[in-house]
Design a protein around this nucleic acid. Structure first.
Length: 409
DNA sequence: CATGCGTGGTC
DNA sequence: TGACCAAGCAT
């Protein structure tokens, strides 16, 4: 597999190929470590064409590490809206605050320091060190694993973490002296434009003459990669309710987990049978929200939406409501439970506190609490008008649903 | 090591 | 048209 002559040829020819011509990308116009860093975070699991406009807006709004460090979190999330993997944005800002504090806003040309930044793993660390500072560190992403699997006919399953570690060792040996940045980018450029996942373009490839896969006709069989699992179906019932001023009731998601800190319509998971039945759905929805202290009067099925995440497939049915109130006792329980608890755990905690008191009080009295729009809202809930809707960060699913609602009204 | 974590493009 | 894919990281 590994051949010293083929390895030397690879580094030399690939770097030369890259230097002869490469894509003009916004983050390639300087070696500003901050630009390289931001671009590499955005490029994690995300296509170049998607990232370009996000990168330009982000740098315009936050030109330096300090600007990012000092910004309100909601501004950062708004600029990240639609890009996905939102913890990247929050980690990026947390790291910017660290860099501002510890290093005066300058990213150090130091492996330990860069590797220690939030959201920076082995790939991104190598990318920043090599591209911004030309430090000879490998930067092994999916492109690099694919290219090297083919060039050296590696048969390791690149879906497994161990494969990345092994290929990193190989990639480190391939870096031509003094050319780490260009070589690492050349590898990724080749993977993106020539040595593509399906039907690689071998004829124009600058290193085809020593490519082991090409020489043995196996370029279409490599790399070996086990298939990902299908997203798990989940049925959800959401509530769309507006107040007298046409504002929509929204809530902010918790700090951790899926779509952390983004805004959404109140919604809950339901078994398919309840979800699908126009008789059962309102009961399920009202009861479940009631356990969270939100009492609603449902008024009809408004429409459906579907959204696929990496690991979940949401089927969302939107129900209109005309009355809403919040149970103050529950709200207080939520606040108490939130001391040290988050998300679903806090809800369970509040729900059990609620159930305990419900028994003391005889049954379902609390669920039949008076409906009124004049109640105080829990901390994470808000009535949102058109302007605030535009200012807050929403996952695509709810941005579409609420956006279409405002377009109609 | 496996799983959770978004979205849009492509065939 | 559903499955696969894209410059991964945290836990």
């Amino acid at each position: 597999m590994y051949d010293a002559e083929a390895a030397e040829f690879f580094g030399r020819e690939l770097t030369a190929w890259y230097r002869r011509g490469n894509r003009d990308l916004p983050w390639r116009r300087s070696k500003n470590p901050y630009y390289i860093w931001v671009s590499e975070i955005m490029l994690q699991q995300t296509r170049v064409d998607t990232v370009i406009p996000y990168f330009n807006r982000f740098i315009e709004r936050f030109p330096t590490v300090s600007d990012l460090a000092e910004a309100p979190e909601e501004d950062v999330l708004k600029l990240w809206e639609g890009l996905g993997y939102y913890s990247r944005a929050r980690n990026l800002q947390a790291a910017a605050r660290d860099v501002a504090e510890k290093y005066g806003g300058t990213i150090p040309a130091d492996k330990e320091a860069v590797s220690g930044m939030k959201g920076v793993g082995p790939y991104t660390s190598g990318a920043i060190l090599s591209i911004a500072f030309n430090i000879p560190e490998p930067a092994v992403d999916g492109n690099v694993m694919r290219v090297l699997s083919r060039y050296f006919c590696l048969e390791e399953d690149i879906a497994k973490p161990a494969a990345r570690v092994a290929i990193e060792g190989l990639a480190r040996k391939l870096i031509p002296p003094g050319a780490a940045g260009d070589f690492n980018q050349a590898l990724m450029e080749l993977g993106a434009l020539v040595c593509t996942p399906r039907s690689p373009h071998c004829l124009p490839c600058p290193v085809m003459e020593h490519c082991e896969a090409r020489l043995t006709g196996r370029q279409d069989e490599l790399p070996i990669k086990t298939k990902a699992k299908k997203p798990k179906p989940q049925h959800r019932l959401a509530v769309l309710i507006e107040d007298e001023q046409g504002r929509v009731l929204a809530r902010q998601r918790p700090e951790q987990g899926l779509l952390a800190r983004l805004w959404e319509l109140p919604h809950i998971e339901a078994p398919y049978e309840a979800w699908a039945s126009d008789e059962e759905a309102p009961n399920w929805l009202a009861t479940t929200l009631g356990l969270e202290g939100m009492n609603v009067r449902l008024a009809g099925h408004l429409g459906d939406a579907e959204h696929v995440f990496s690991h979940l497939h949401w089927f969302v049915r939107i129900w209109g409501a005309d009355r809403v109130s919040f149970d103050p006792a529950i709200r207080d329980d939520m606040g108490a439970a939130a001391g040290g608890l988050f998300g679903a755990e806090a809800v369970r905690e509040a729900a059990s506190a609620y159930e305990g008191r419900e028994q003391e009080r005889d049954g379902k009295a609390a669920l039949a609490a008076p409906l009124s729009a004049a109640n105080e809202l829990p901390a994470d809930y808000r009535w949102v008008d058109r302007e605030e809707f535009a200012r807050l960060a929403w996952p695509n699913l709810f941005r579409k649903i609420v956006g279409e609602h405002f377009d109609r009204s």
